[in-house]
Design a protein around this nucleic acid. Sequence first.
DNA 1: TTAAATATTGAATATTATTCTAAAATTTAC
DNA 2: GTAAATTTTAGAATAATATTCAATATTTAA
Lengths: 159, 159
Amino acid sequence: MAKLEYNLDHIDYQILRIMQNNARTNNADIARELGMAPSAILERVKKLEQKEIILQYNAKINPLALEQNLLSFIFIKTSDIIGEQGVAYLLAEIPEVQEVHDIAGDDGYLIKVRTNDSSGLVDIMRNTLGKIEGILSTRTTIVLETIKEEQKLVIPTKE
Amino acid sequence: MAKLEYNLDHIDYQILRIMQNNARTNNADIARELGMAPSAILERVKKLEQKEIILQYNAKINPLALEQNLLSFIFIKTSDIIGEQGVAYLLAEIPEVQEVHDIAGDDGYLIKVRTNDSSGLVDIMRNTLGKIEGILSTRTTIVLETIKEEQKLVIPTKE
DNA sequence: TTAAATATTGAATATTATTCTAAAATTTAC
DNA sequence: GTAAATTTTAGAATAATATTCAATATTTAA
C-alpha cells in the first residue's frame, strides 16, 4: 500500500469543519459559505472521500430512543501474542461492541460496549465473550453518566 | 422536562439504519428503498430530528489525515462530590477530549483524548488538566492500535 | 519561462428537496 | 363499535440542489 499523501489546504479544512459539524450540509451551502462554485466544492468533497480523509457519514442516534441505556468499558486480557490480534477481530464482530483498542501495558484490549441494561451486558459476557478462546480475564467499568461523547477532531485553523 | 415518548415503528427503524450507515443518503433514495413517497420520508426524518432521536449528522474524519495519531484513555479521580460533576464539565470543554464518562467505582471519570502525539498528550495533562482544581490523580492508558471505532447502535429488526 | 497537470468557474441539465392539498389510515373518545 | 380527530401518506407542482462538462485559470514541474 502506497503512502497516502494528504495534502490539505485551508479550504479543505473548512469543508471538513463544516461536514464534521453537519454532514448533511449541502454543496450549495458550503459553496456559499466559502465563496466558491458548487462544482468546485463537489470536486473537493469527492476527493476527500476518495483519499479516505472523510471516512463516512453517520447519523448519531440517541441511545435512549433505542433503549440502549448501559455503556460499559471492559478491559480484556488475552493469550494473543503481541502483534497478533486474533481475539480483537472476534470482539470487533460483536454488534454491541462499538470500539476495540489494543492498549499498552498488560491489559490487552479495551472495548466499549453498549447494551440495553445490565442483563444485556451479562448476556454478552456470558454467551459471547465467554465463548471466545483466548480470553484470560476481564475487568468491567460501568458508566453512570456520559457528559460528552463525540468523535470530532480538532481541525487546524491555518494550513 | 416532560418524558419524551419515542414511538418508533419499523419504518423509522429502517430510516435510522440507513442514516446510521450513510447520513448523506438522500430522501429520494430512502423513499425508493422503502417504497414510499419522498414527502412521507421527509416528514419522518424531520420528526426524528425534532424528537431528538437523530441527534446530529457527522462526517467521520480520518485522524491520520489531521496528524492525530495518539489516542488515550485517562481515569481521573476528583474531589467532586457524588452527583456533582464540576470537573466533568471542565473536562468536556477541552477540544481534544472526545468523551467524558462518570464511572462507577472510585475512579471518578474516564475520558478519551486524541492528540497529535505523546507531546500533545503531555501538554494537555500539564497545561490543561493540571490547571483544573479538584483533580486528585490520573491514570493514563495509551492505545497502540484501534481495531474498531464507531458509534453505531444495534437497531431492532422488528418493531 | 514554458508545458503539463490540476483546479475552478459558469452554464446547462438531471435530480432532488420541499411545499401543499386531498385522501387514506390510524388513533382517540364516547 | 362508531364517529370525530389526528396523523400519515401520496402525488403534483415548484424551488432548489446536484452533477456534468467545456472553457478558463491556476499551480506545478521541468
